[in-house]
């Protein structure tokens, strides 16, 4: 079932690791508690939708044969006239209501089963990759989204935990790189692949957020530069050039001192 869905959607279950030093990369999913959390977040939405459905059913059921609302009366009248005039079909109001109601009920059930069944697959497709140099987040089912940033470019990190998340013992680690732009959905905890801010990476639903943060922080401490553009000292080719210059300067100094000694010896 799952394999079939994935094949139909053309999504591979496992993500692609970035090239380079793959040994240092931890590739992991959100914690299992995050799945339970997203199920729990899904339930109230469904209850709300069910409430709305029942309310509208009660409303339309109350009107049954005698249409009381003036506005609706007008609408039905217009519909009736159009249909009788144009299509020569007698309109059965009751039939219209029943069809509408059954469409609404079916739609609710279908979306409920569908979104519910996909919660687990969605969770399985959410991957985080944390390495010594790279951070990559992949998520999404319909809309696949993969974000890659280097650790060196990370500006700051935020750990966020809501009350329900605290109950499950999970939290979100949010990573920012430099650059502005509106559109960050600060309160979006649903875990869906929203557009959001492209400079923000969300590592949602992990039990060890502070550990990950500490790992990234310790890498950042070793790096110089502000995370903007290129720092020459972070570039091995430049570093080599610096080393060559050092050696040259040292050699010159050596020659000078040697000469001084010779001079002194001659005196």
């Amino acid at each position: 079932m799952k394999q079939r869905v994935l094949k139909l959607l053309r999504v591979s279950e496992r993500p692609q690791l970035p090239p380079g030093d793959r040994a240092s990369i931890d590739c992991f999913r959100a914690s299992r508690a995050h799945l339970r959390y997203s199920v729990l977040m899904w339930v109230p939405k469904q209850i709300l939708a069910l409430g709305a459905l029942l309310a509208s059913l009660a409303f339309f059921g109350g009107l049954d044969p005698p249409v009381e609302m003036a506005g609706l009366d007008r609408v039905f009248e217009v519909v009736e006239r159009i249909e009788i005039k144009l299509l020569n079909i007698p309109v059965d109001l009751e039939w219209l209501l029943v069809t509408g109601e059954s469409i609404a009920i079916t739609a609710f059930l279908v979306q409920g089963v569908f979104t519910g069944a996909l919660l687990k697959i969605r969770w399985e497709l959410r991957w985080y990759m944390v390495g010594d140099e790279v951070l990559r987040i992949r998520e999404g089912l319909w809309h696949l989204r993969e974000q890659t940033m280097t650790i060196a470019n990370i500006q700051n990190m935020i750990i966020r935990q809501g009350p329900v998340q605290r109950f499950f013992g999970i939290s979100d680690l949010i990573v920012h790189t430099a650059g502005g732009g509106a559109g960050e959905d600060a309160n979006d905890a649903s875990g869906t692949a929203g557009k959001g801010n492209l400079h923000t990476g969300h590592i949602r639903g992990v039990t060890n957020a502070s550990e990950i943060q500490e790992r990234i922080q310790s890498r950042l401490r070793q790096l110089r530069g502000a995370g903007l553009g290129n720092d020459a000292r972070d570039n091995p080719r430049q570093a080599e050039a610096f080393a060559m210059a050092d050696a040259e300067a040292g050699a010159a100094l050596l020659a000078e001192v040697r000469g001084l000694r010779v001079d002194l010896a001659d005196r």
Binding site: L144, E146, Q147, T148
Partner: peptide, 13 residues
């Protein structure tokens, strides 16, 4: 290349 901050790869169905 050196000024790249993030790379996003997205694809819909």
């Amino acid at each position: 290349y050196e000024r790249i901050q993030d790379i996003h790869l997205t694809s819909n169905l």
